[in-house]
């Protein structure tokens, strides 16, 4: 399964799309835990961004908190730059319903008011439930709801499609 996708090539594709549109000295990048941070790290390096990478754990912002509670492992969000008036690339591994991105946007705005946020994802599942679209994606993949696509990592990064466990 994992041999189907060449993650490195996908990352290169994304980096090439982004390169003409970023200012390495001023653009900031934020990855969403966990997979998004891995993708962001790779892109951050490829694009040679100067500002340190931001990391976001959206556990406290999820809209399904009251149903499923906190993830057993919550990490600290860390945005080591001033968000105010910043041009930001928000990075996640997979865009599915759009709910994670919504939570991430809410959280970023609690740090300050950025000038622009663009969404970068490795995989776009093309089945969003909210009016949230990726500005950049390396792979568009239509899967039925019985399957999920998961980025495993951090070293090496592997993209895998699996049948969803029943009942979840």
């Amino acid at each position: 399964m994992n041999s189907r996708f060449d993650v490195d090539a996908l990352l290169n594709t994304l980096a090439e799309q982004l390169r003409p549109l970023v200012d390495p000295a001023a653009t900031a990048m934020i990855g969403i835990f966990t997979g998004g941070v891995w993708v962001a790290r790779a892109l951050h390096h490829r694009l040679g961004l100067v500002l340190p990478l931001g990391e976001l754990d959206i556990s406290f912002y999820r809209d399904d908190f009251s149903r499923i509670g906190l993830h057993p492992e919550v990490r600290a969000s860390r945005l080591p730059f001033d968000v105010e008036d910043r041009d930001i690339l928000l990075v996640d591994d997979v865009l599915y319903t759009g709910r994670t991105v919504r939570a991430a946007l809410n959280e970023i705005f609690d740090y300050g008011r950025p000038r622009r946020i663009r969404l970068v994802v490795l995989v776009d599942r093309c089945s969003r439930e909210l009016p949230i679209a990726a500005d950049f994606s390396a792979l568009q993949l239509r899967l039925d709801s019985h399957h999920e696509i998961k980025l495993n990592g951090p070293e090496p990064l592997r993209l895998e499609v699996q049948a969803r466990e029943s009942g979840s």
């Binding site: 754990d57 556990s59 406290f60 912002y61 919550v74 990490r75 600290a76 969000s77 860390r78 968000v83 105010e84 959280e107 705005f109 609690d110 740090y111 300050g112």
Partner: peptide, 13 residues
Amino acid sequence: SFLGIAQRAIKKT
């Protein structure tokens, strides 16, 4: 994780 929230502009989740 919550320790950092007090340092933000908006100290609320």
